Amino acid sequence: MTDTHPDTRTVVVERDLPHSPEKIWRALTRSHLIGEWLMETEFVPEVGHRFTFSAEWGEVDCEVQEADPHRVLVYSWNAGELQSVVTWTLTPVPGGTRLKMEQTGFKRDQPRYYGGARAGWPQFFDRLELVLERLD
């Protein structure tokens, strides 16, 4: 976990996965797959597309800011008072892909959001890996 600005905090999760960038991109951008590892959504990987992640605890309002297939995906992640940005970076490495997720914008007075992200993203990655294992 790194701090990029004195007034905000960032959560970073990075893993090397034994899958191609194309396969990981599918799991990051297809609504039915996203619903299996993250939350229910009607996601479309097009800049400007607005969508919502839905879970039993509530909703997250989002908008796609960048979508470079198999390389970079960026969207806003706004829930309650939290105004943040999630950036996915896919980098080919020997034997697979390094997948990095960086969520920026946690204010110092938002420990609940920051703590939730620190605890939640590694679990989401675990579930993503299970989805990837069964994809062709």
Rank of each mutant, 00 (worst) to 15 (best):
P18E: 08
P18D: 06
P21M: 01
K23C: 04
W25R: 01
R26S: 13
R26E: 15
A27L: 05
A27Q: 04
A27V: 09
L28K: 10
L28Y: 03
L28P: 07
S31D: 11
S31F: 10
L33D: 02
L33R: 02
E36L: 13
W37M: 05
L38W: 11
E40H: 14
T41C: 13
T41Y: 11
E42L: 00
V44Q: 12
P45H: 03
E46D: 09
G48H: 03
G48P: 04
H49Y: 13
H49R: 14
R50T: 13
F51N: 04
S54W: 10
A55H: 14
A55I: 09
A55V: 10
E56P: 10
E56Q: 14
E56F: 12
E56W: 14
W57V: 04
W57H: 09
W57N: 09
G58W: 13
G58R: 15
E59M: 08
E59L: 05
V60W: 11
D61M: 14
D61S: 15
D61Y: 15
E63G: 01
E63A: 08
V64S: 06
V64R: 09
E66N: 00
E66C: 01
D68F: 12
H70M: 10
V72Q: 10
V72K: 13
V72A: 08
E81I: 07
L82H: 13
L82K: 10
S84D: 08
S84T: 15
S84N: 05
V85P: 07
V86A: 06
V86P: 03
V86L: 09
V86Y: 05
T87R: 15
L90H: 01
P92F: 00
P92C: 00
V93E: 06
V93W: 01
P94D: 12
P94A: 08
G95Y: 05
G95W: 06
L99P: 08
L99K: 06
K100P: 00
K100L: 09
K100W: 01
Q103L: 05
Q103S: 07
T104D: 09
G105R: 03
F106I: 03
K107G: 15
Q110G: 07
Q110Y: 06
Q110S: 08
P111E: 12
P111M: 13
P111Q: 02
Y113N: 08
Y113P: 05
Y114R: 03
G115T: 03
R118M: 14
R118W: 00
G120W: 05
G120S: 05
W121L: 11
F125H: 07
F125Y: 11
D126E: 15
D126F: 06
R127A: 12
R127G: 03
L128T: 03
L128E: 00
V131P: 00
V131N: 01
E133I: 02
